[in-house]
Design a protein around this nucleic acid. Structure first.
Length: 589
RNA sequence: GCACCCGUAGCUCAAUUGGAUAGAGCGUCUGACUACGGAUCAGAAGGUUGGGAGUUCGACUCUCUCCGGGUGCACCA
């Protein structure tokens, strides 16, 4: 009896090494041959190897002859598990045999086994995921949505792929806004309003302080004095500041709870306060930074634009800014967390900043003989309204995240109540929360993050097409089948005696189930969750086709067992995948 | 002005990063058995991938150029 994981999680990697072996046996130059195995379109098979084409060109050989020689040398296990054909100019196609499909599905039958299989991608790598990162004393609004949702999904996908993830909320808790805020706090605080909703009161106070400072230069001076007092450790100002931070974090957490987010660290800008002088010193000492117009700046001579566009690391008034703070943060993450890499989930308007930051950090670390972590700016586009402009309320205000999530839940509640009026009120509410918030998350994740994204309630919760509700509906139908039999998905009793898939719909579904491994790998490698969304949508579609073509609960024991196994694996992949995206799932809706 | 991103079916989006006949959903049209949940399924129509040139066995993808849209560019983060 072989161990369970003798079946590789990624069948693709097994083919890759088999092809290399065959290439050696067929006399190819291994230094020049890359098999280029990838998932294929279903009509061509499960996997395809394209490497023969490039090799044939270099070797001036006939690609089809070469492919034939290569296929003849393939190890036995490949022929036992796959149909192998040569097509077109020299593609080698692999179609898994039904017995191999069954073998994989039997080997990967639980979330833990899937996780163990996937974890080989980033074994033990420490990665910092820097996401959400709102400013304190303000409501989270729609502009904060994408970073939170995409960042959480990536953190989960990378952790599932074996990484040790540190989720870090790099909040904006230190800046010039605190002078005006504290000034107004001391003079115009409404204690009742503070008790009712502290963030709204802070926002009101900030606006009041800002308006007063603009109207009267003397007040501006006083506000600046408050900032100086705060930064020099004045006890009263520090206590007010602390209160603002605490209230802000409490408010943020209410949003995070609804989105399924928790952070391992919340190291905001204030945390790096005492760590920026070292940055100034080292960058100046190594000749990387220089004074210009009173500020300390870095130019990059070899860069077409940044040789003249400065990276300002200390303002002319001597204060730090987010460039210096971000540099100090990189050093801390490298030293303290031993991070192999950092991903910044920040919108694409900050591309220049990150390009300059990364260039500067690379040069700084090189000159100080440190090892630089991998740095990735995971950028994303703007959330647009129906008018193709950034999404706002009718009054031109930012839409508060709590209102947006509330509306999503209300819309989902109306829908659930229409479709399932017999469900108890409390259950309809909890379904509405899962479907409503999940729809918002999924709509964001399902699209390639690089582009702007059009926020449309009707499409999001329409429940048709590539939406959370369609996937959740597939999940609940599968649970419904098992519920009817008094079973749980994955129950060994239900699957006992299951044979290999036979009907076209069974085979198509099984082949799609096996693609889970590729979808996770692709999303993980590219840091793009939409590849996983696309997979889940295709899987749900394949299930729906199977469900209408082949009845599951038939009398014939063998047929029933193998179809229940297919249902169990489908729901396993759907639930695991949805959880990786940060969504919650349900068993009926 | 300089730089970066984007332009794919009427609409909203894909295309595994250079692979095979560019795919989905919505909308439109045609069908589905008294069946495990019809929030479903099967099918049809719809394209010179903004225009042009180039690179190669092969281009939505790379290069150049033009057109159109967006964003950033000295001290807010």
């Amino acid at each position: 009896m072989s161990s369970r994981n003798s079946t590789p999680f990624h069948l693709l990697t097994g083919l890759d090494s088999a092809l290399k072996t065959a290439a050696g046996a067929a006399g190819l130059d291994l230094a020049l041959f890359n098999p280029e195995v990838r998932a294929a379109e279903a009509r061509h098979g499960d996997f395809q190897a394209n490497g023969v084409l490039a090799y044939a060109k270099q070797a001036k050989a006939n690609p089809r002859d070469l492919a034939t020689k290569l296929v003849a040398q393939l190890p036995d296990f490949v022929r036992e598990t796959c149909e192998v054909t040569i097509a077109g100019p020299g593609f080698i196609n692999f179609t898994l045999k039904p017995a191999a499909l069954l073998g994989w599905m039997q080997a990967y039958s639980t979330p833990a086994l899937l996780a163990a299989g996937a974890a080989a991608a980033r074994p033990g790598e420490v990665w910092i995921v820097d996401y959400s990162s709102p400013n304190t004393a303000k409501q989270m609004h729609v502009g904060h949505l994408r970073s939170a949702v995409i960042g959480e999904a990536l953190a989960r996908i990378m952790a599932f792929s074996g990484a040790k993830i540190i989720r870090d909320n790099h909040i904006g808790d230190w800046g010039t806004q605190f002078g005006k805020l504290i000034w107004a706090y001391k003079r115009q605080l409404d204690a009742a309003a503070l008790a009712r909703d502290p963030i709204e009161e802070f926002e009101r106070l900030y606006k009041a302080g800002n308006a007063a400072a603009e109207a009267d230069p003397a007040i501006l001076k006083e506000a600046q004095q408050e900032l100086v007092k705060l930064q020099s450790g004045d006890a009263e100002d520090l206590a007010i500041w602390r209160q603002i931070i605490d209230a802000s974090l409490t408010a943020f957490q209410q949003i995070y709870d609804r989105l399924g987010i928790h952070f391992d660290e919340t190291l905001g800008e204030s945390f790096y306060n005492d760590k920026v002088p070292l940055v100034y010193r080292e960058l100046a000492d190594t000749g990387l930074a220089a004074e210009s117009q009173g500020a300390l700046v870095v130019f990059h001579e070899s860069h077409p634009r940044f040789k003249t566009q400065p990276f300002i690391i200390r303002k002319s008034d001597g204060a730090a800014n987010y460039a210096s703070s971000d540099l100090a943060t990189i050093l801390y993450r490298a030293d303290h967390f031993r991070a192999r890499g950092i991903i910044y989930v920040v919108d694409s308007r900050q591309r220049d900043h990150f390009e300059q930051l990364f260039l500067t950090a690379a040069e700084w670390f090189r000159r100080t003989r440190r090892t630089l972590p991998a740095l990735h700016h995971v950028d994303f586009g703007t959330v647009l309204g129906e008018n193709n402009k950034p999404l706002k309320t009718r009054d031109g205000e930012n839409i508060k995240l709590k209102d947006l999530l509330g509306e999503a839940e209300e819309r989902a509640y109306a829908l659930v109540s229409a479709k399932s009026p017999d469900f108890p009120e409390a259950e309809r509410r909890s379904i509405a929360a899962i479907v409503g918030v999940g729809s918002v998350q999924y709509a964001d994740l399902a699209q390639n993050r690089s582009s702007d994204y059009l926020f449309a309630w009707d499409k999001m919760i329409s429940l048709e097409g590539n939406t959370a509700a369609y996937l959740l509906y597939a999940v609940s139908r599968i649970h419904s089948i098992f519920r009817k039999e008094g079973l749980q998905p994955g129950d060994p009793e239900a699957e006992a005696g299951a044979g290999a898939p036979e009907t076209p719909a069974e085979i198509a579904l099984a082949r799609k189930i096996l693609k889970f491994a590729d979808a996770v790998r692709l999303a993980n490698d590219s840091l793009r969750p939409h590849f996983l969304c696309l997979y889940l949508y295709e899987l749900a579609g394949e299930f729906s086709a199977f469900y209408s073509a082949d009845k599951v609960l038939v009398d014939d024991h063998a047929i029933r067992a193998r179809r229940l196994l297919l249902c169990a694996r489908t729901v396993l992949m759907l639930e695991t995948g949805l959880h990786l995206l940060g969504l919650r799932t349900l068993t009926r809706m």
